[in-house]
Every structure is written in structure tokens, then in C-alpha cells.
Design a protein around this nucleic acid. Structure first.
Lengths: 184, 184
DNA sequence: CGCCACGGCAAACAGTTGTTTACTGAACCC
DNA sequence: GGGTTCAGTAAACAACTGTTTGCCGTGGCG
């Protein structure tokens, strides 16, 4: 899985060959089948690995003081840190989210939907959401999650030195959304 | 290009073979080189084709009455219609935006940045933006463009019959953003 | 008429691919 | 200590890949 992840920094899953992976690992091609049925199978395993660590991230954002500026600052910081620390995993997710392998796409979509639900629960529990319908809370959560994803992608592709500017923009965007929330 | 686009509905560019394309067209492999140097070259050509039609879409949204609910409804309707009419092109863009071919990624990024600038110009000209800094206008434009992209992707992957619900969510999200804008 | 560029062809090239088969050694458990 | 599972091997398979080469008909232009 590590070898695959490394190879996937410069290509997408549907073009990654099984032999390519085994070659990097230093193992015979047939050995691959001891672990995965297929390349798609490996992809799904990578999705789980990648999103496991992301769950932790979400918790870290949702815990802590509720003051809204505090929360947006923490969100962006945590996302930036995560991208820096797990660059290859994040790139993999961004690339394969709409990539050419159905099973992987679906695994990512399902997991992102779960994130949305989690965020929605956290939002619903907040004072500001008093009187909101369940669907409205869910749509706001979707907006937050989408924004988080876009920010991560932007940070990934940022030229070195541009990260701060991007993080700053992301913070202002989050703040604007939260403003809309308070006046809904 | 049409053949490639068809083949790309179920795989990504970096795994699409030149022979695969010529086979579908019904032409010898060598004939490919009469038109493109490479597969990446074909990809860049497809980006231009895909985003040409999108420019028209943006104009269509930005023209017309400025009343904000009117504008959000029109935006979502136009995006939905575009996805329906140019499904393969939109899918290609979504897939290759973070895909495995650098030249294509960069072509898409450059074009999306131009969209952002265009939207920013239009926003700056509106009454509501009085007193906004240039950067704040640009960050709002980015938010709109990102949301448009996310909406298009969501519509692409929607199960049949789910489109209306997604469009509705997108409208509410846009409305919330616009609300934040007015209270900025 | 002659020319020439265009878009096409067949054939060959050396590599690479996914998958199957039968076999082997180590580790583990009772 | 014997059996079983686990993770690995080498070799062979047919199929497919991108690229180069030299050749050919058609169409348009001067």
C-alpha cells in the first residue's frame, strides 16, 4: 500500500499496474494476489486508510470552544496541518474521488457522506441552530464539508509559499458562510 | 476527440491508450500522430473544448436581473441544464481536474481561475459590493465558483431522480452564502 | 498539369501487461 | 513433531502497448 501510494503521486489508480507495484516492493507479481484480488481492491483499502486518519481530524475540529471565529481558525489550521502531514493520502483522495474506478469512487463518497452526517449532528447540537429544520442543518454541513475538501485540494496544488494566502482565503470564506448561518 | 470522450466516461485519461482511441474511430494507430503528439495533448484539446461551452454558461448566469434569489435560481438551473446536455464533458473535467496528467490539470486550473476573475468583476460591479476590498470580492467569487463545481459534480453522480433534491440543496446553500455576503 | 500537403495505411519493433500454475520455506498450533 | 496456513517464488501465456518507418491516394492550388 505504501508503494502504491508513492506511485499514485504522479498517476491515477486506473493506470497503475499491478506489476508496477510489485516491482517497487521488490516482490514477484504473483505475490500481489496474496493480498488483493485486484487493483480496485487495493484502492478501496487505501481509501479506508486515508479516511481513518481524517476522522480524527474532524473530531479535533468539533471538540473545543464553540466561539465561531475560534472554530473557523482551528478548522483551517487542522486541515492545513493534515495536508502537510499526509500529502500522499490527501492527493489520492482528491484524485480518485471522481476517478476512473467505480468501487473507489463509491467508497470515498460513502465516507464523505458519513462526515457530513457527523458534522450535521454537531451543528444541530449548537445553540445557533435552534429552529432549524433537519434538512437545513444537513445542507449547511454539506457546505462545510465541501469547503473543507476544496481547501484541501487547493493546498495540495499550491505553489510553495502560497499556502498562507490560501489558508487566509479559506478562513474568510468560512467566516462568510458562518455569517450567513447566523442570519438564516 | 469524440471517441476519447466516450472512452473517458469509464476510465481516466492517464489510463486511456492511443490504440484504444484509434480502434474506436476505426483508424490505424499511426493516424493518431497526424492530430496529436501524445495523449496529454489530446487531453488539453478536450479541456479547451469543454470549457469553451462553459464560458457561455457563465455569461448566461451573470446577465439578467440582479435580484439575488432570481440569480441563485438561474445559476442552479443553468448548471443543471449544462450537466444534462454535456455530461461527458463535465465528467471529463471533474475527473481530470485532479487527475494524473499535469498538463491537463494545469489547463483546467488556469481556466477555472479565469472564471473566478470574471465572476469577481461581475460581483464588484454590483451595488452590494460597495466598500468591499478587491481581495474580499475575489474570495467570494472563489466561493461561488467552487460551489458551482461541487454542484456539477454532485449532479453528475446523482442517482436518477435525485437531481431535484440536489438542485434544491444547492439553491439553499447559494442563498446562505449570499446572505453572508449581505451581512459582511 | 504538376505539385504538394494532408490524412490515411500496413508492418514491424521491443516492451509491458494481468493471470495461472505448481512449487517452497517459514511460522504457528495442538 | 506433524499438519496447516501464510507469503513468497519462477516460468510461461497470450494479449496488448507506443512508436517508427516507408508508402499511397485524394484534393486543392497555382
Amino acid at each position: 500500500m505504501d508503494a502504491a501510494l508513492r506511485l499514485l503521486e504522479e498517476q491515477s489508480l486506473s493506470s497503475l499496474g499491478l506489476r508496477e507495484v510489485t516491482r517497487v516492493v521488490g516482490v514477484a507479481p504473483a505475490a500481489f494476489y496474496r493480498h488483493f484480488r485486484d487493483m480496485g481492491d487495493l484502492g478501496v483499502a487505501l481509501v479506508e486508510e486515508s479516511l481513518g486518519s481524517l476522522h480524527v481530524v474532524i473530531r479535533r475540529v468539533l471538540a473545543g470552544p464553540e466561539d465561531s471565529d475560534e472554530v473557523t481558525d482551528r478548522s483551517v489550521a487542522v486541515v492545513a496541518e493534515h495536508v502537510r502531514a499526509h500529502r500522499a493520502h490527501v492527493r489520492f483522495l482528491a484524485r480518485e474521488r471522481h476517478g476512473g474506478v467505480r468501487a473507489v469512487r463509491e467508497a470515498i463518497a460513502a465516507e464523505l457522506a458519513r462526515f457530513g452526517d457527523e458534522v450535521a449532528d454537531a451543528l444541530a447540537a449548537q445553540e445557533v441552530s435552534r429552529g432549524w429544520s433537519r434538512e437545513d442543518v444537513r445542507m449547511l454541513a454539506g457546505l462545510y464539508v465541501d469547503h473543507l475538501v476544496m481547501t484541501a485540494s487547493a493546498l495540495l496544488e499550491a505553489a510553495p509559499g502560497e499556502e498562507d494566502r490560501i489558508a487566509d482565503t479559506a478562513r474568510r470564506q468560512l467566516r462568510l458562510i458562518t455569517l450567513g448561518r447566523r442570519h438564516w
